[in-house]
Simulated scan of single mutants.
Amino acid sequence: MTRVAVVTGGSRGIGRAVALRLASDGQAVVIAYGHSSSAADAVVAEIADKGGQAVAVRADVADETAVAALFDAAEQQFGGVDVVVHAAGVMVLSPLADIDLDELDRMHRTNIRGTFVVDREATRRIRSGGAIVNFSTSITRLSAPTYSAYAASKAAVEAISPILAKELRGRDITVNAVAPGPTATDLFLDGKDAATIERTAKMNPMERLGTPEDIAEVVASLAGPARWINGQTIYVNGGVA
């Protein structure tokens, strides 16, 4: 039986790399996107060109009705759901003293409420043998200035994931969080000058930025063969500390 994966934020960046990797591993993929239908359709076309199966569905991850419809679409198109990768997220950077509280609310709506909404629907739909992979960030350990609000929202994800893993006892469903370090995506690169990017790249012993494919490799393992990893946060950052 073909495994079926729902990937939120699957039209760009790390989510896109995850969708492509899971499809290459033989999973049917439902790509949830928030804004750009053209970007999502391009990922679907790329998967189809390589012989895989994929569809794109627009969904606000913090809207429970939209997320229920997303899972309905997965079940109608492919017969069920085995893997949920919640990669959708918002990052707003600011010193705490200057934080725009409306921006804080917007980020927490997607990053915290969105995780609850997506994970809640996943627990109701996902089949035995399945996996839930949430996304945190290595910045929860690095404690860099201007990241307080973003780090706080992702620390919540790290708290949610192991508790949900325990709540799913007896169902053979794993729940883990992946915490990337600096990764060469639009989300990370936007607004940074070349010197900042180079300095950041050298923070880890590998002396480079991560790639979306580096992160997707770990997600693919958690979404497939790595059944004995459960309730963990996996830091995928080249050794930055």
Rank of each mutant, 00 (worst) to 15 (best):
I14M: 11
A39G: 07
H86C: 09
T233P: 11
I197Q: 03
Q27H: 14
A223Y: 02
A5C: 02
V7R: 04
W228R: 01
D63H: 11
A159H: 10
L104Y: 15
A149E: 06
I160G: 04
M107W: 07
T123W: 11
S11C: 05
D72Y: 01
V44E: 07
I99N: 14
I215S: 03
M91K: 14
V6S: 03
R58H: 07
D63Q: 12
R125I: 11
W228P: 00
A155Y: 11
A69H: 09
G238F: 05
L20F: 08
I173P: 01
S148A: 15
E167V: 01
A74L: 10
V61Q: 05
G80D: 09
A149D: 11
A122L: 13
L222W: 04
D72N: 11
V219M: 08
A201I: 02
I14F: 05
L96T: 15
L96E: 13
Y33T: 00
D25Y: 05
L189T: 11
E64G: 15
L164C: 05
I112S: 06
V118W: 05
G10I: 09
E167T: 01
K154M: 06
N237W: 11
G52Y: 08
A59R: 10
F78S: 07
A155T: 07
V84H: 10
R21P: 07
V118E: 07
E167Y: 01
F188G: 07
N237Y: 12
S128C: 12
V92W: 14
A23C: 00
T115C: 12
L22Y: 07
A220C: 01
A216R: 03
A56Q: 09
V55E: 09
I173W: 04
V84C: 12
V84P: 10
A59Y: 11
T123R: 14
A151H: 08
V117T: 13
T115M: 10
N237P: 13
M107K: 06
G170F: 04
T174S: 13
S11R: 03
F78C: 08
T8V: 02
A152Y: 02
V175C: 01
P95H: 13
A17Q: 02
V90H: 14
